[in-house]
């Protein structure tokens, strides 16, 4: 092998090496970038889940507080402190209405209409068709 051929070979090896370095470097940087992005996404995900858990904790607290505020004892105390005097109705105060109340009210307001509606069908003697 003469000297020029050897130089050309070394030259080629160097060029290929550099190209390979650039190529593998790019892959390396790409991989690092990708892993960084994965890390960021994973951390964002983790933070979101942490936040969700925090919201859930606050929600649990709220639910417990609402339940406590709705307890009969708490409501009675509130009724007493606000002097509302709320109480269940007594039996004597209740008038029970049988049947459909709306229908009865409507019938009372429009007697002609409802009387006509419930008139049975029939033929008048001597009438014409």
């Amino acid at each position: 092998m003469n000297k020029s051929a050897a130089n050309a070979f070394i030259n080629q090896v160097l060029v290929y090496t550099l190209v390979m370095l650039v190529f593998t470097g790019s892959i390396g940087f790409g991989t690092v970038w990708l892993r960084h992005e994965i890390s960021l996404a994973a951390n964002r995900n983790k933070n979101l889940r942490t936040h969700l858990a925090e919201v859930q904790r606050h929600l649990d607290q709220l639910i417990a507080e609402i339940a406590a505020a709705q307890s009969p004892d708490a409501l009675i105390r509130l009724d007493s402190s606000m002097r509302l005097g709320l109480d269940m109705p007594r039996q004597e105060q209740i008038q029970r209405v049988p049947g459909d109340v709306e229908q009865q009210l409507a019938a009372r307001r429009n007697p002609d209409l409802f009387v006509a509606e419930i008139q049975p069908a029939g033929f008048r003697r001597g009438g014409t068709r």
Binding site: S4, N7, A8, I10, N11, V13, L14, T17
Partner: peptide
């Protein structure tokens, strides 16, 4: 193909260094 800088012994040292 031109000799380029590969003919320079320093390049050989560089390449050796990299390897």
């Amino acid at each position: 193909m031109s000799k380029g800088f590969a003919s320079n012994y320093r390049m050989v040292i560089l390449a050796t260094g990299i390897f």
